[in-house]
């Protein structure tokens, strides 16, 4: 049986570029035309095979906290990857990419995999951001680049496959006997000594 590895992915980008739509397409293969800011979703999950591992993505949405520039540092904690989304039909949303990259450098983990997604590529006729320019920018910061359409299910799966491939293999767990854990109703395993 393949080992399941949980990977936190955080989404960044301006309000309205389609962050939630991308997750919704990826996780539920569904597109809602008038999606309201995500209510009630702490994060969504989807599991994909990668090599001899299963990658279970825990995809965190900004929950609207980006709207007034009030994302909390805890949002970035422990993320294996970040997807920065812009809207190819809105030049402004591309210009603010740099700000998100900077923010990620400041608050994100050092070894985080960064992907840049130019969303709404189904609206090519009103495109404002040339693909070449975006691609060059992504290359300059060693980020994955892809144009997506959440509406038409274009490249969404591929985006996460690319991320999966760049996740470094699991390091051997070090001999730290006091590992961190999530709180559950059950006592955490392993740490209790037995007489």
């Amino acid at each position: 049986k393949m080992a399941i590895r949980e990977l936190k992915v955080c989404l960044l980008g301006d309000t309205g570029v389609g962050k939630s739509s991308i997750v919704c397409r990826f996780v539920q293969d569904h597109f809602d035309h008038n999606i309201s800011p995500t209510i009630g979703a702490s994060f969504l999950t989807k599991t994909m095979p990668c090599g001899n591992e299963l990658h279970k993505f825990l995809i965190w949405d900004t929950a609207g906290q980006e709207r007034f520039h009030s994302l909390a540092p805890m949002y970035y904690r422990g993320s294996a990857a970040a997807v920065i989304v812009y809207d190819i039909t809105k030049l402004d949303s591309f210009h603010t990419l740099k700000k998100w990259v900077k923010e990620l450098k400041e608050h994100g983990p050092e070894d985080i995999v960064v992907a840049i997604a130019g969303n709404k590529n189904d609206l090519g006729d009103i495109r404002e951001v040339p693909m070449k320019e975006a691609k060059e920018f992504a290359e300059s910061i060693a980020a994955i680049f892809i144009e997506t359409s959440a509406r038409n299910a274009v490249n969404v799966e591929e985006l996460f496959q690319k991320i999966s491939k760049q996740i470094p293999p699991l390091e051997n767990p070090e001999g730290d006997s006091n590992e961190s854990f999530k709180l559950t109703r059950q006592p955490a395993p392993s740490t209790r000594r037995c007489c």
């Binding site: 609207g64 906290q65 007034f68 805890m74 904690r77």
Partner: peptide, 24 residues
């Protein structure tokens, strides 16, 4: 992990996830 300052942020996220609006 990451300190006690995480805990208020976690509750704020829960508030935001259910539609609360944040403005620092």
């Amino acid at each position: 992990v990451y300190g006690l300052g995480e805990i208020p942020q976690c509750f704020c996220r829960m508030c935001a996830v259910f539609g609360g609006i944040y403005c620092l």
